[in-house]
């Protein structure tokens, strides 16, 4: 895989734009949502699952790099725990918040 300068510039552009977008995305958040927002965005940071997937595969194409393979496997397990656990626990918290909203409506 050769990295060209245009490809690198494109990646850096993406990086900088996404950071600016992230700054703009979150403005006023009520304290009630601080914990769910944190745990939801924490689940999103489990995106490294993508990297772990690629390397879990690549590791065995060479055949001899068992260490690299196990490291990728560990990364895959941890990233999956982060993703699944993160979204599930956020969903549980949201369920409680949504639950009380429904209770409120009829009155």
């Amino acid at each position: 895989m050769t990295l060209t300068i245009p490809a690198l510039i494109a990646a850096i552009t993406l990086f900088v734009m996404a950071i600016f977008l992230g700054f703009e995305l979150i403005t006023k958040v009520p304290p009630t949502l601080h914990t769910p927002l944190m745990s939801g965005s924490n689940a999103i940071s489990g995106i490294s699952i993508v990297g772990a997937l690629f390397l879990s595969n690549v590791a065995f194409t060479g055949g001899s790099t068992a260490l690299s393979g196990w490291l990728a496997f560990a990364a895959l397990v941890l990233a999956t725990v982060n993703v699944v656990g993160g979204f599930a626990v956020t969903g549980r918290m949201m369920g409680m918040i949504a639950g009380r909203k429904r209770d409120k409506d009829p009155s």
Partner: peptide, 27 residues
């Protein structure tokens, strides 16, 4: 996660990672 995006040259890693990084800092 965004840095691993640079290692693997993967767009979604860069975008999702930076989003969490920036919005997390604001939070």
């Amino acid at each position: 996660a965004a840095f691993t995006g640079f290692i693997l040259n993967n767009s979604v890693l860069i975008v999702a990672g930076s989003l969490v990084g920036a919005s997390g800092l604001i939070l």
